[in-house]
Design a protein around this nucleic acid. Structure first.
Lengths: 246, 246
DNA sequence: TAACGCACCGTACAGTGTGCGGCGCTCCGC
DNA sequence: GCGGAGCGCCGCACACTGTACGGTGCGTTA
């Protein structure tokens, strides 16, 4: 309360501070609550005060477990990375299947938490987070299993991850604005149509593409496009790095 | 000034509002100033007030030219996109060279304006911005020139752009934290080394890679890795979409 | 039982985006 | 030449942000 408003008429009426109803805060708990809040209301809704309230805690109580908001976000990013399926150490289906599954899982994780792309630009891929490390080691192992040298595996890892992150970034941005609009994807596209048509006015190829996409199942198309691009990349990687011309 | 402080003792002492020393504000001018500010001080330093001051204008004067801050950022993103080299309509060196140059140019633009990656997550790739449209049309044309169908060109475009954005995202994030640290890249890596070593403790492949990278020219390595990944992708695209097995 | 440390919290501060009402300049119709 | 209208700019205000600081009480250890 600001100073111009006396919350209680007298000291004697003021209630005692009730302590320890809830178990004490922990870093893990804070991260989990932040994740919930982000998933429920998006990046703009995450404020330390709201997070505090959700934890039955004061606005600044988190600062004993977390240096600042940025650090909290790094932790949350690594937490999300922990949801990504780790390639099996010795997948009998071969490296390609393992990497494909892992890439799909990464994309799915990003799309489950679309706010993450507006945080990735600050944290990179959360260098040194334990889940990131575990994941990367496993992917390297999968590539090595396919005959890649360690250096080639590193390049391949970077290429694939960059592709997945890049695709997911624009997808997630789209999904976010879509969610903010409150409409269905079809409705939203329809409402955007005049603007799109005018923007594409002088560009015949874009016009044609937009027109073709207008009445398609956009979500399915996105999945197909993702798969197709991933296949291309794996083809390229295999041709360049895998022995015995896969 | 807040109400508790009289800025002038009397009306007569109050200076007249000097008007029209500067030419009036324009959207283009605002976007340019925002770009300068972002390049000079990064994303956190862009506030409407600071931008106003830089333009010799009040804090809210921009709102007649721009709906809100988000819209301003969309405009700035498209502006940056305008710096990217557009593939020539009929490049004699072939589609591969054209796309390669364009991809390099896009990466360079992002790295010149590293703050952009923390905005891309909200705007996607600034759907419908005029520069984005022009650029995309030209890239589609370049792929078509290489014998791709329009649909294939679209997929190829998405794949390449996703890759470039993905790579640049983590690079830009790295460069940003590097800049914030105020140290040289070598020093920064050295200071991070103990943490990295510990994080990689249980992961032999990562340990080996880190050790190998420790004393390399990181900037050159990044360039090489980018090229190598791009080549892979173009190989994959050519094999899949270009006629007569380029 | 005394003292101490640690987790937590209220308050405060400087700063944010932006709605609103008004002011002054410019221009247009007379 | 003059009156009024419209538009661009601005000061102010509001609700809200991240977080530094100085307590305050609980649990534990001496």
């Amino acid at each position: 309360m600001p100073a111009d408003k006396q919350p209680y008429p007298s000291v004697w009426a003021r209630p005692q501070r009730p302590r320890r109803e809830q178990p004490p805060l922990s870093r893990q708990q804070i991260v989990a609550a932040a994740l919930e809040l982000l998933d429920a209301e998006g990046i703009d809704a995450l404020s330390m005060r709201k997070l505090g309230t959700r934890l039955n805690a004061g606005a600044t109580s988190m600062y004993t477990h977390v240096a600042n908001k940025d650090e909290l976000l790094e932790l949350v990013v690594d937490e999300v990375y922990g949801e990504v399926e780790v390639p099996a150490a010795d997948d009998p289906a071969g490296w390609r299947a393992a990497i494909t599954r892992c890439a799909h899982s990464l994309r799915a994780a990003v799309l489950r938490h679309p706010w993450i792309v507006s945080v990735l630009g600050e944290t990179g891929v959360a260098y040194l987070g334990p889940n990131v490390m575990r994941q990367n080691e496993a992917i390297l192992a999968a590539f090595e299993q396919g005959g890649f040298t360690l250096e080639a595996a590193d390049r391949a890892l970077n290429t694939v991850v960059a592709y997945v992150i890049g695709v997911s970034t624009s997808e997630a941005a789209w999904l976010t604005t879509l969610a903010r609009s409150g409409r269905s994807e079809q409705e939203w596209v329809e409402s955007l149509w005049p603007a799109a048509e005018q923007a594409a006015q002088d560009y015949p190829r874009l016009r044609k593409l937009y027109a073709a996409q207008r009445n398609q199942n956009l979500s399915a198309t996105r999945d197909d496009d993702f798969d197709s691009g991933l296949e291309c990349i794996l083809d390229g990687l295999a041709a360049r790095f895998a022995p015995a011309g896969g």
